[in-house]
Simulated scan of single mutants.
Amino acid sequence: MTTHANKKTALVTGANKGIGKAIAAGLARDGFTVFLGARDSEKGHAAAAELKAEGDVRFVLLDVTDSASVQSAREAIESETDRLDVLVNNAGIASAPGSRFKEPAEEIAASMRIVYETNVFAVVAVTNAFMPLLLRSDAGRIVNVTSKRGSIGEEGAWVGRPNMTYSSSKTALNAITAHYARSLSATNIKVNGAAPGHVATDFNGFRGTRTPDKGAEVAIRLAQLGKDGPTGVVFEDDQQLAW
């Protein structure tokens, strides 16, 4: 099954649940062919089937930390479309598997590396793998799902308990977003960060105050920016955040 030439396409990573699933649903409702990326085949297929009522949603197996999986996903998507209009780098983890919260002085570097593999390095790997398809779009959009906790200011690192590993991974992601935006400024691609706010998902034990649909709104908007829209910026809702 291939896409129609005039229909926009999007890839959302980590989209079998939570905010990623809500982003996929919203883009599908807005008429995109959405490739729902997930590393678990059973869960990915189930999520894509559930979202069929929203529009054209297709599961693609994608483990963002596995280079072979990233390449296979790129080949699978390229076999169905000649371009990619939107890449939403949503996949992320809060901590290393089995680890508990640690104060910075107690943190283990190996645990930090595991978080950075998904939240930082995988974003670079996936973005670069799909860059040729994004460059074929008349209005390519890259949206990196980040967090206010990535700020080193009063609204970020100084709020709540100091969560150095997760927060600093999002700080790095914000820097990456800015550098991609700068390097692509002469192209049709815009790169921005979307901070969904405190969303109730299994990511935080469902302690958030927002629904996934509400948290997804900012990413869905940034995915469809017009040609005069911003690039290299992080937003929560319609508010540009200072970093």
Rank of each mutant, 00 (worst) to 15 (best):
N144M: 10
A125V: 09
Y116R: 08
I114G: 02
A178S: 09
G215S: 02
V70G: 01
A15N: 12
S79L: 06
N188Y: 03
A48I: 07
V233C: 04
A175K: 10
A122L: 10
R74C: 10
G20Y: 08
I142P: 01
E42C: 00
A242R: 12
A94S: 14
N174K: 08
V234G: 00
T211L: 12
M164R: 01
G37S: 04
S72R: 12
R100K: 14
D82I: 06
G226N: 09
N16Q: 12
D238F: 05
G232Y: 07
G20K: 06
D237S: 13
N144F: 02
R207T: 14
T177P: 04
A53S: 15
F121T: 11
G31P: 04
I189N: 04
A47F: 06
Q224E: 10
T127D: 07
L184I: 08
I77A: 05
D85C: 10
N119G: 10
G215R: 03
A195C: 13
Q239N: 13
M1N: 08
A5K: 14
A48Y: 04
K17G: 07
S41G: 00
H4W: 00
V115T: 14
S147H: 10
G215H: 01
F32A: 04
K21T: 05
L62I: 06
A195T: 00
N90L: 13
S95W: 06
V86T: 10
Q224L: 04
G26V: 08
Y116V: 06
A105K: 15
T65M: 05
T127S: 15
I77F: 02
S151F: 03
E155S: 12
E75T: 13
L61P: 02
G20A: 08
F121G: 01
R136L: 11
K227W: 03
V126I: 08
T146V: 07
K102A: 15
A76D: 12
T165M: 12
V159S: 01
A48D: 08
E78F: 01
A172W: 08
T3F: 08
I93G: 03
A139I: 00
V233T: 05
I176N: 01
T13Y: 05
D66P: 03
H4Q: 13
K102H: 11
A178R: 15
L62A: 02
A73H: 04
S169Q: 04
S167V: 02
K52C: 07
S99Y: 11
R113T: 14
I176T: 04
D56F: 06
G92C: 14
W158E: 08
I114L: 11
G208S: 07
A129L: 07
D237K: 12
G31N: 07
G98Q: 13
S151N: 09
A53F: 01
L225H: 13
S167D: 15
P162F: 09
A223I: 06
R83T: 06
Y166I: 05
